Simulated assay, not measured.
Amino acid sequence: MTTETVRAEDGATVHVRLHRRPEEPSAPVLVCMPAMGTRAVSYTPLAEALVAAGFQVALGELRGQGTSSVRVRRGVRYGYHEMVTYDYPALFRAVAAAFPGAPRHLLGHSLGGQLGTLYLSREPHMAAGAILVGAPSCHWRGWPFPRSLGMLAGFQLAALFASVYGYFPGRRIKVLGNDSAQILRDMATQVRTGRYDVPSSPVDFEPWLAKLDLPVLAVTVRGDNMAPPGGVRGLSDKLTSARVTHWELVLGDGTRGSRHYGWIRDNAGLVERVRTFVDRA
């Protein structure tokens, strides 16, 4: 494993972990993007399993998390716009340069998958396909009642609180991680409207999503309350030009913690399914 510093156009940097197969430099590369509030290093067990299965892996980082040079605090503002316009393009260009001749696939978890899909809707030539794991549209109607009302109210209150506090102190209140108030505002808007037309971005991504023509594997994890089937379909149903395959991942009874994250370690089933998907893409 090597580490490369990737610099976005606006100057923000992250350290990207590159897991290579020197004996097979043309092996497919999976560009892994984490969930909200989750550091890239948490996905190391998954990366190691994917390399053992014949893949190469680039572990990216969301802005404001882990190795990102952007530190979440009062006065620091970034949202979907900065991540989709600056961070994802810089990452994919760096991966293309680091793995010349190797096909690239997005492997996005939750918010990392959502933002990766927005990025690829504008630059589909940068990937051969996308695997979206527990990556829902956050529209409140994708959750069963009464959890749907909790989603709607909870995110509006979280966005308001973050705006007043200056940022979202997720680690302190033990809900996700620390994040920019603008991220919460963008997410709250998408929760309310169901549309990827958010305050931080001048781009309405809805028509771009409808034109995305790539093979997509949309993975629902059984028992994942943070990304239920209705939410996952809420995102994949926007991809009307894509070749979408839906698949449910069933984790073992011994899987620890939340189903939204348990697959990162209990990954054998997913790795096998990803192998089949990439081979057919």
Rank of each mutant, 00 (worst) to 15 (best):
L91M: 05
E272I: 00
F92T: 08
R280T: 02
P228T: 12
G116Q: 07
A158Y: 07
V16G: 06
S42I: 02
L239I: 04
E23M: 11
L157Y: 00
K174M: 08
P169V: 03
G64P: 13
A210M: 02
R77H: 12
G113Q: 06
C138I: 11
T255E: 11
A210S: 02
I264R: 09
Y78D: 12
L120D: 12
Y80I: 09
H105S: 11
L152P: 08
D224E: 13
T240F: 10
C138T: 12
L214H: 08
M151I: 14
G194V: 13
E4P: 02
L46T: 02
V6Y: 06
P229S: 10
R280V: 03
G154D: 13
M1L: 14
T189N: 15
I131A: 08
K238I: 07
L270E: 03
A281K: 05
D197F: 13
G108W: 12
R141W: 02
Q56G: 09
S201N: 11
V72W: 02
M33Q: 10
Y165D: 07
A40L: 05
M33I: 04
C32A: 08
D266T: 05
K238D: 13
V203T: 06
A130K: 01
G75V: 11
K174S: 08
L160K: 10
G234A: 10
D266M: 01
R147Y: 15
T2K: 06
G60F: 04
L176N: 14
M226K: 10
L249N: 06
L251I: 03
G75T: 11
E248D: 13
L184A: 10
H81L: 07
E248F: 03
H260G: 10
E48Y: 04
D213S: 09
Q114K: 07
H246V: 00
R195S: 15
L18P: 00
A102M: 10
S200Y: 15
Q56V: 11
E4C: 04
T117M: 03
D204H: 08
E206R: 07
T117P: 06
R71T: 00
R93A: 14
A127Y: 09
Y119S: 03
V278N: 04
Y261T: 15
G231M: 03
L62I: 12
A188N: 05
Q190V: 12
R243E: 01
T193M: 08
L18S: 03
M36R: 14
A281F: 03
V219F: 00
I173E: 13
A281W: 02
S69V: 01
H246S: 02
P229G: 12
F168Y: 00
V198E: 13
P202K: 09
L91N: 00
E123M: 01
G257I: 05
T5S: 14
D87N: 06
G60Y: 08
M151T: 11
V198I: 15
E123A: 14
P136H: 03
T44R: 07
G112C: 10
I131T: 13
M126V: 05
A47P: 14
Q65M: 07
A47K: 11
V95N: 11
H19C: 12
A159F: 14
L239W: 06
